[in-house]
């Protein structure tokens, strides 16, 4: 081994698995690009469709009920759905991609900022996504309990529904703020360690 040219020769003469057909590669690129471009719009569309259904359903229920507490509960839930739609359309488009044509440190900064923004969004899910409808459901539950108190007493079965929706909300919170954030933080740490400029070779 007599220097850089031999290293270069060694590197450049390595064989690799077959060449991809050009047209096949173009189809693949098109497919991957379309799939990537659709992920966030499709997710937002589904969320907004769900929120619209909830808003209409509870809005209609609020208009028809004569019970004050139930009406307040339905209005809060319907308003929460509208608020979630607004939030998703306003902030849910996701951060722009880091530009890979920058130099390494600028690109790394862009990626880290992207991770930080996603982490912040997931950590705030409890405020903009979970808390408003949960408050609406709690108001509704209080209404039911008051009603039952007036008509003979609260039964243990009255706690089943609040337990179920509380468990569901807790699961969604865990999925976002614990599981999701942990995954993103691990990826972020891995990115930083890969791009660590301080550690040289042993």
């Amino acid at each position: 081994m007599n220097g850089k040219d031999e290293l270069r020769e060694l590197w450049c003469t390595q064989a690799y698995a077959g060449v991809t057909e050009r047209e096949e590669l173009m189809k693949l690129i098109e497919k991957k690009t379309k799939r990537f471009d659709r992920i966030i719009p499709v997710r937002n569309f589904l969320e907004c469709a769900g929120a619209t259904v909830v808003a209409v359903m509870y809005g209609v229920s609020a208009a028809h009920t004569h019970d004050g507490i139930a009406r307040a509960s339905f209005i809060v839930i319907a308003a929460s759905a509208v608020w979630i739609m607004y939030f998703l359309l306003r902030f849910g488009h996701g951060p722009g991609d880091a530009d890979p044509s920058q130099d390494l440190s600028a690109y790394r900064r862009g990626l880290v900022e992207r991770y930080d923004r996603q982490i912040r969004l997931l950590k705030s899910v409890k405020y903009w996504y979970l808390l408003p409808p949960y408050i609406g459901l709690l108001i509704g539950t209080v209404g039911v309990l008051l009603d039952h108190t007036r008509s003979g007493g609260v039964r243990w079965q009255d706690s089943i529904l609040p337990a179920i929706y509380t468990a569901f909300f807790a699961f969604v919170w865990w999925l976002n703020e614990i599981e999701g954030v942990a995954r993103l933080e691990a990826e972020r740490a891995r990115l930083l360690s890969l791009a660590d400029e301080k550690n040289g070779p042993e």
């Binding site: 880091a98 890979p100 044509s101 130099d103 990626l111 990826e187 891995r190 890969l194």
Partner: peptide, 23 residues
Amino acid sequence: ASERTWLYRIAHNIAISSSARLH
């Protein structure tokens, strides 16, 4: 930038960010 430096910048940046997942 020249075409070659532009291309290698993109390739290396994508390789660094993707290799975290592939690893």
